[in-house]
Amino acid sequence: MRTRSGPRVPGALALIAALTLGAAGCVPLEEEPVTPPSGSGNIDQMLSELTVAEAGSMRGYSRNRFPHWRKTGQNCDVRDTVLERDGKSIEHSGCNVVGGRWESVYDGRTFTDPSDVDIDHMVPLANAWRSGADEWDDSKRGDFANDLDRPQLFAVSASSNRAKGDQDPSQWKPSNRSYWCQYAGDWVAVKHHWQLTVTSAEQAELADMLEGCTWESKP
């Protein structure tokens, strides 16, 4: 049973062994524990509790309806907070992160210039809009766009973030296949917390990605 406990530790993800393409598709061979998504509960159960519905309309959507990035703590804003959290050897100029080292979990690429790094929303803003966020007010949408408590914000390569766009896991997955278990678990955790819907194709793909995944148990 996959269980989730304790906070997510960015940069300390344990990778499962390489996946291979078999007769039934890509499946994990030998697995190592994967850091569970932040929060509590069982991922399989959370997936089963998500409401399945057709994707909603994009009518009225604008990124401005999801105000970001908010000012936060000693950093200038949430973007700087994620850059500092996900990077190593961080350098500052005032409250801005201006240097460091980042490894993009989506494709394994490494960067030292923060301008080459995007902050990705695990569940993209446009996807959230089609999944129920269109009914929220802008304040709640701002909470979603700046959510540091769920596995929602990640420093990744700009190219992978832009290739992903607003697609769900049935339409796009990271090229780093060893990250698929973590990716699917994080996606489910975010949608479950924010009570967003999934399409039938999205639900089926998430179930396939989670098949055989092993989460690291924490005391």
Rank of each mutant, 00 (worst) to 15 (best):
T110N: 10
P169F: 05
G108V: 07
Q167A: 13
F111G: 12
Y106E: 06
D149M: 14
S175F: 12
R141C: 11
D147N: 05
C181I: 02
R162V: 04
S115A: 14
S159Q: 14
N127M: 15
D107Q: 01
D186H: 03
D107V: 05
V117P: 02
W180P: 02
T110G: 10
R150S: 10
W136L: 05
N176A: 12
G132K: 12
L153N: 09
P169R: 08
N127I: 14
A184E: 13
G185A: 12
R177A: 15
A155H: 05
K173V: 13
Q152K: 08
G142A: 09
P124Y: 06
D116Q: 13
P174E: 03
A128S: 09
R141G: 10
R130F: 06
P169V: 12
C181Q: 02
D186E: 02
N146A: 04
D186K: 10
D113Y: 03
N127E: 15
R130W: 14
A155Y: 12
D147H: 07
N161F: 01
K140V: 06
A126S: 11
S160E: 00
D118A: 03
E135R: 12
K164L: 03
D134A: 15
A163L: 08
D120T: 03
P114W: 07
E135F: 05
D137T: 00
P124D: 11
H121Q: 01
M122N: 14
K173H: 15
S175H: 01
V123S: 11
D120S: 02
D168V: 13
D113L: 03
A126N: 05
S170Y: 06
Y106T: 12
D166Q: 05
V117K: 01
P151R: 01
E135A: 07
W180H: 09
D116W: 04
A158F: 09
K164V: 01
F111P: 08
A145V: 02
H121D: 05
G165Q: 09
K164S: 04
G185N: 02
C181R: 06
N161K: 01
L125K: 06
N161W: 12
V123H: 14
S131L: 13
D116M: 03
M122L: 13
S170C: 09
P124C: 11
G108S: 11
A184P: 08
S160V: 00
S160Y: 11
D168A: 13
G185K: 01
D116T: 10
P114Y: 03
L125G: 08
A158M: 14
L153A: 08
P174Y: 07
F111R: 02
